[in-house]
Amino acid sequence: MTALLELTGVGKQFGGLAALNRVSLHINAGEIYGLIGPNGAGKTTLFNVITGLYQLDSGKFHFAGQDYQSTMPHLLAQAGIARTFQNIRLFANLTALENVMIGRHQRTQAGVFGALFLNRATRTEERASADRARELLRYVGITKSSQTLAKNLSYGEQRRLEIARALATEPMLLALDEPAAGMNATETESLKVLLHDIRATGVTVMLIEHDVKLIMGLCDRVAVLDYGRLIAEGVPDEVRQNPAVIAAYLGSDNE
């Protein structure tokens, strides 16, 4: 298998704090890859780095045939990385449909001319975009009206709407930051099914999760961060036995 994403010696500093300390890892195309670690370990920071929200201080990463050191979020999205956010960041006052259609932005063309004159190409594109968005809403299991404002959806639905919006960008890599946080057991179970489905369509999935059981049952490989360092990487069973991992989890008061 070839690596879709490869981090080499990635470092990110906040003042004196090394949120990421020379992290190297790779994610293969087609796998479900889990990222775990105690709170504050640097997991979200790693997501922010590979989606261009943070500029890294050292090292580099490689995604789909290209090296990145400093770049802008929208370019990485166009390159094929889509993400969700730990503290849901939907477009709260827009409808569910519009949220997903905004995900289509980078795969569509219409500019000001198209907007004003609504020529045939624009109309076709808009319709296709709306159709696809509705399809994605169904796909992730949002049954409420697509005209519901994002802020009026339930918590679980909002998490899934974020996934639909991310999928609308047609990513190669889908990065999910604690997608099961706040979900009940049933919701978590259906999320698991959804993620398997998504992987089956050829999208590589990377997820941060606190629920160790979920991670172990879902992921092909798992990496563990602690204080910004990668302390273990491998298949779930291996990682579970790793003494450093056990120490990290026992040493921290959460989980």
Binding site: P73, L94, I102, A115
Partner: peptide, 24 residues
């Protein structure tokens, strides 16, 4: 009601999320 307008409103609602969705 256009792609452009939606992108504007996305920026208004959450600029970081908008840029992460590929909006320049």
């Amino acid at each position: 009601k256009s792609r452009i307008g939606r992108a504007w409103m996305a920026i208004r609602e959450d600029e970081i999320a908008a840029s992460s969705m590929g909006i320049n």
